[in-house]
Write a protein that binds this DNA or RNA. Structure first.
Length: 579
RNA sequence: CGGGACGUAGCUCAGCCCGGUAGAGCACCUGGUUUGGGACCAGGACGUCGCAGGUUCAAAUCCUGUCGUCCCGACCA
């Protein structure tokens, strides 16, 4: 391609609405443009990168034995109702109506459709295993689109769904995808690593996310430096808090004491009360499917809402508002407690974090504004309905596996693999006859990669102060030719000749044939980030030379006769490193 | 949805407090000079100041509403 004949709208300054560097470079390098919040048009250069990422994904999915299909983006709500997700996922579902007022769902993912296909087409164990994938546009009514392509209302996702005859077989399918993902991100030049993950609204019981470390990432990953443990903070566990919990009883029964104006854990830990946060019980009220629930964690712990969601088994839950809290507990936030004898309504279920089991000598709210209770022994004074791990792990806590302190870092989630089990196959009736003639539900897995997000994650990880530094495998063009003279000059003539030869050799080459000054071309070249630049200038041409300049590497003069062969060798070598 | 910031030329922004002529740099068009790290000179084109009301002799500027964008939180590839 000749630069003068395509559209690469580079920008000297970052647009005001781009906050993070990858979003800025996405726009500055002319890869895409915003139509409106969360919706982007891919310009020619950006589309080339997108296609390259897709192709890597396609090759690795095919290699892993998955079959490419294409499902409708417009889906009937009935199948969403059958899976139950018409309700549980309703906040992210875009809906549209047709002329007869019938409602349709714009696909945010495709478990329902693929399981419908499996239900009608898979009948025998002899057909299994099967794994279907597609690369297509997905729609999600995101609460807040953010950071360009990172979180958009419409994005491109590769989604795959495996069907197996048993749990063990499903595990093997899962493993294949896990390995394929590892290869995919490596080929894209990304340093991504798998972490244990929460399963969220999709459901299922086993899951990993592939994370790209980045300060701008929306996730927090807890990891042990031994490499033996890494998990999303929503899922992460540890050997427990560094400060132990009190286990010695301080009195025969809870004792009420006045705490006027004290409504925070912190205030109660100060003089004159001096109750350490670790010796307090934090009482939180949530509304789950319309009903209040009480949630208890240690005073110095943070509730992990993802963990709570998993235990509540509710389709929807949220923090209670003050009026709801007063109605349920008889006191305002700051004086709440779960001590059974002080409860206004003892029918409300109590969920408590495991750390509170057998905690003694604790302090908590008295359900009376301005009063707390001391000498609370949890096992004696509080009726707990559900014990569970509900706390958020903190930095330096010890890993269960290794006993070593763990760290926390931010990361971008680019892929997610789930073992789904039979949740969807049962609801949408995908079953098969086993060897012994028994009808069984297929055991499913599902596997997603955010293609557009991966593209931006590459930029987030591969850039310097001057612009993008594309890995050869996903670069929009592999080689950029920059003749420095004007049209008709000797340098431009040689540029044209190299362009012809490299194109014929199958190299993706972009010729900067614009009538611009050298400095201008170099700035654009660095910004756009083509991995290998070949410059043809008057001075070097006089010596019979051209210059090879890998993006981010050192300039090298070579004989012009050797240019084509050297460029091809360089491209092949770079691709080989990423294969 | 809660909290915050911002909407002025294609882009980045000034002007707004303190009401009175709509500005700069970059980009764009024409001509000329330039040509190894975002050139220079001369000329030109580009705006219902997000939108709608209101106050006023007069509104980019003050008031009210509304729409949009971005950031922080809940959601996720």
């Amino acid at each position: 391609m000749r630069w003068s004949q395509t559209l690469i709208p580079t920008l000297k300054e970052p647009p005001a609405d781009a906050e993070i560097v990858s979003h800025q470079l996405l726009l500055r390098a002319g890869l895409c443009r915003k139509l409106t919040g969360g919706l982007y048009t891919f310009c020619p250069l950006g589309l080339r990168v997108l296609r390259k990422v897709e192709q890597i994904v396609r090759e690795e999915m095919n290699r892993a034995g998955a079959l490419e299909v294409l499902m409708p983006a417009l889906q009937p709500p009935e199948i969403w109702q059958r899976s139950g997700r018409y309700e549980t996922a309703r906040d992210v579902l875009y809906k549209a109506k047709d002329r007869s007022n019938k409602e349709w769902v714009l696909s945010p993912t495709a478990e329902e459709v693929i399981t419908t296909l499996a239900a009608s087409e898979i009948n025998s164990y002899r057909q299994l295993p099967l794994n279907f994938y597609q690369i297509s546009v997905k729609f999600r009514d995101e609460i807040r689109p953010r950071f360009g392509l990172m979180r958009a209302k419409e994005f491109i996702m590769k989604d795959a769904y495996s069907f197996d005859m048993s749990d063990e077989a499903a595990m093997a399918s899962y493993r294949k995808m896990y390995d394929a993902y590892t290869r995919i991100f490596a080929r894209c030049g990304l340093q991504a690593f798998p972490v244990e993950a929460d399963t969220g609204v999709i459901g299922g019981n086993y899951s990993h996310e592939f994370m790209v470390p980045a300060e701008t990432g929306e996730n927090e990953v807890v990891y042990c430096e031994s490499g033996k443990y890494a998990a999303n903070i929503e899922k992460a566990t540890s050997r427990g808090p560094l400060v132990p919990i009190p286990t010695v009883s301080t009195g025969p029964a809870p004792e009420k004491f006045a705490t006027p104006g004290v409504v925070t854990i912190d205030a109660l830990s100060q003089a004159p009360y001096g109750v350490p946060a670790a010796a307090q019980v934090k009482t939180l009220i949530f509304i789950a499917d319309g009903k209040p629930v009480i949630v208890l964690v240690r005073g110095d712990d943070q509730l992990n809402e993802a963990k709570l969601a998993g235990k509540l088994g509710a389709t929807a839950f949220r923090a209670a508002v003050p009026e709801e809290i007063v109605a349920a507990m008889g006191a305002k936030p700051g004086s709440l407690g779960a001590v059974t004898s002080t409860r206004k309504d003892t029918a409300i279920r109590v969920f408590a974090d495991e750390q509170l089991r057998s905690a003694r000598g604790m302090t908590t709210g008295a359900n009376e504004d301005g009063f707390h209770l001391r000498h609370v022994d949890v096992d004696r004074d509080i009726r707990v309905d559900v014990w569970a791990d509900l706390r958020t792990v903190r930095v330096d806590e010890l890993a269960i596996e290794t006993g070593l302190p763990m760290k926390i870092r931010r990361a971008i989630e680019v892929g997610h693999v789930f073992k789904l089990g039979t949740k969807y196959s049962e609801k949408l009736e995908s079953s098969f006859l086993d060897v012994d003639g028994q009808r069984k539900p297929t055991v499913m897995g599902c596997y997603g990669i955010g293609i557009t997000r991966t593209l931006q994650a590459v930029i987030e990880q591969c850039h310097d102060k001057d612009g993008i530094v594309w890995p050869m495998s996903v670069a929009p063009y592999q080689v950029l030719l920059t003749p420095l003279g004007a049209a008709g000059s000797a340098t431009m003539q040689l540029g044209e000749e190299l362009y012809r030869q490299l194109s014929e050799a199958g190299i993706d080459v972009l010729l900067d044939d614009r009538d611009e000054r050298p400095g201008f071309k170099f700035k654009d070249a660095d910004l756009v980030g083509i991995p290998l630049r070949v410059s043809v200038g008057e001075k070097s041409l006089a010596k019979g030379e051209v210059e090879l300049k890998p993006r981010g590497g050192a300039l090298q003069a070579i004989r012009k006769e050797e240019a084509v062969a050297q460029v091809i060798a360089h491209v092949r070598e770079a691709l080989k490193k990423l294969s």
